[in-house]
Design a protein around this nucleic acid. Structure first.
Lengths: 338, 338
DNA sequence: TTGAAAGCGCTAACAT
DNA sequence: ATGTTAGCGCTTTCAA
């Protein structure tokens, strides 16, 4: 006689127990390793589980433990296109990491003034912890989360001093890239164009840039720096001015700004790198395939994701975790600065 | 006296029932609207729920109904960078749509030979249905899903004839774009470069291209068509040949191929659109910011996502759903073909 | 080392 | 129209 369960239904704990002539408790213990079970019975149980192709009903487990085995990931929905590869890579590595530890990843979409998805997940208790992929500047997500005692980790800067965070070494990276360029370009010929200074990442970039000059014993003229650029038109004006004062090496805050810069330069007949060198503080595929490919800093989204996920899972398991984790970068030196 | 629940703990059904002096069943019915409750009590209940800030414990609800209120979304992890914006936009609109109907979205990462995340979700029963964002060509995901009787919908073509699918009208779009170009270019001067023909989408593109010629009463010479291009080097060779035979209008299968094409043309001193016109069967930000911006077909990822999600949710709710849903496209006519 | 039984917070069949 | 009660499939005390 076969030990199969009732037709059609997936095997459950009780089926295993019956098949083996032991109690559900024993089986449960054998699986979780929590109580004490003799090695012999444990082996019998594990064999039987394989044979009957049992896998626990996670909803029931969740219910009884009052844990969901889900982590929520807040994905910013605005300004998405440009950063999509970053978020996507990051998300994938989070989900991979979670899966390895038997957690699932639930997506929480967030728009500037719409935290409703986050509220929903909080209210329905469908996650044990949350990763914020890019905190809003007003810290409203963190506030919501702390209010509900929901553990969370942020990627990037957070306004909340208590937040556990993981970030890339933007400042160091920018400093290093700038320093590299200062080796072959006169300080006065190096210009910087940067986007919205409301974003902390842009402030870090600025600081890194300035620091490189300090380290080399010089200072930058404010005339060489254009911050808060919002449109191609503003960028165009900035570039015109930088060229006028004799810049031959342009640093761009991010990939889109850089792409635009390359287009503008090309359109006015400047060739890169012969007439002018260009580099970006943030790499992307655009800059990989650009003509010519552009020197840029590369931050590994995948590592950020997995570091963040393991951190959060550690916290959920009661281990304590470093308050701040900073990951490194890579300098991609390419034709645009040669 | 205040009707607060025991300190600290979130209110639950029973608290509401007690506060109102009715049974849990009544409260449950008032919320779900399933049984019959007098309008008066229903209002009292709903008021009380607001006042006590009750929200149901979804795990318990799940458990009792044997539903998770989750849908799984399979995200392909290979070849990711280029398509990230598409997947991301699509994912966000799925999650938005699900949230509106009180479902959550769990991410399922999939690599070519690693369906372990999908298996996990299936085994743990953590989703009520699944969206496959891009089926593998061997249909292995669909097989797994059907085997477990897990409802699913695919985005794009599926090898499974029974699959409910949502797709964009690639063939029609390509046909229309080609037709548009044939209005101002001699048929013999129009060339096509396409990537991997293993992908169905590329076959649809090819068919649309050919059909436009047929519709206009001409035929394409095979010499004007290069399929299965795998590298920049192959593309370069193809372009050289197309130019040699007198092509002045190049159609590219997708954005990356197109970007490459633009770079190659520029590098050999051709100007777009003066010397040669260029268009792409698939738009992306690259082509938006390119110099010059490139004429391309735009498929709305966001609509694909929401259509797919509502379809799946309808199926889960027992409504029957169209077997095939085809969404439209937009033609972005830009400088590269003017 | 093992088992019996209570309980997690809902839903739904059945009774009133 | 409302209440009573029995599950749902696990984990976990408590007892043996």
């Amino acid at each position: 006689m076969n030990t199969n369960t009732k037709q059609g239904k997936a095997a459950q704990l009780e089926d295993i127990a019956k098949a083996l002539g032991v109690s559900k408790t024993t089986v449960s213990r054998a699986i979780s390793g929590k109580g004490r079970v003799s090695a012999a019975t444990r082996d019998r149980v594990l064999d039987c589980i394989k044979e009957m192709n049992y896998s626990p009903n996670m909803i029931a487990k969740s219910f009884s433990e009052n844990k969901t085995y889900n982590i929520g990931v807040v994905l910013p929905m605005d300004n998405i296109e440009a950063e999509a590869p970053f978020f996507q890579t990051c998300l994938m590595s989070i989900s991979k990491c979670c899966a390895l530890r038997s957690y699932d990843t639930v997506v929480i979409g967030a728009e500037k003034n719409d935290l409703s998805q986050l509220r929903r997940v909080l209210a329905s208790r469908k996650a044990d912890g949350v990763i914020i992929m890019r905190p809003l500047q007003d810290g409203s997500m963190e506030a919501l989360l702390s209010e509900q005692n929901m553990p969370y980790v942020t990627i990037g800067q957070s306004i909340d001093p208590d937040a556990v965070r993981v970030d890339s070494a933007h400042k160091d990276g920018c400093c290093e890239l700038t320093a590299y360029l200062l080796m072959n370009n006169k300080p006065a010929s190096v210009g910087l164009v940067l986007g919205d200074m409301g974003q902390t990442v842009n402030r870090s970039r600025y600081e890194g840039f300035v620091k490189a000059f300090e380290n080399s014993g010089t200072t930058v003229s404010p005339k060489n720096i254009f911050l808060g650029l919002k449109s191609s038109i503003q960028l165009r004006a900035a570039i015109d001015e930088l060229l006028r004062i004799g810049c031959t090496c342009l640093l761009c805050g991010d990939d889109m700004l850089c792409m635009d810069t390359v287009n503008i330069l090309t359109s006015i007949g400047k060739s890169i790198p012969q007439d002018i060198r260009v580099a970006s503080f943030y790499n992307s595929m655009y800059l990989d395939v650009c003509a010519p490919p552009v020197t840029a800093l590369k931050f590994k989204a995948s590592e950020l994701g997995s570091a963040t996920a393991s951190l959060l899972l550690d916290i959920l398991e009661g281990k304590d975790a470093p308050h701040e984790t900073i990951l490194g970068f890579e300098m991609l030196i390419r034709k645009s600065t040669m």
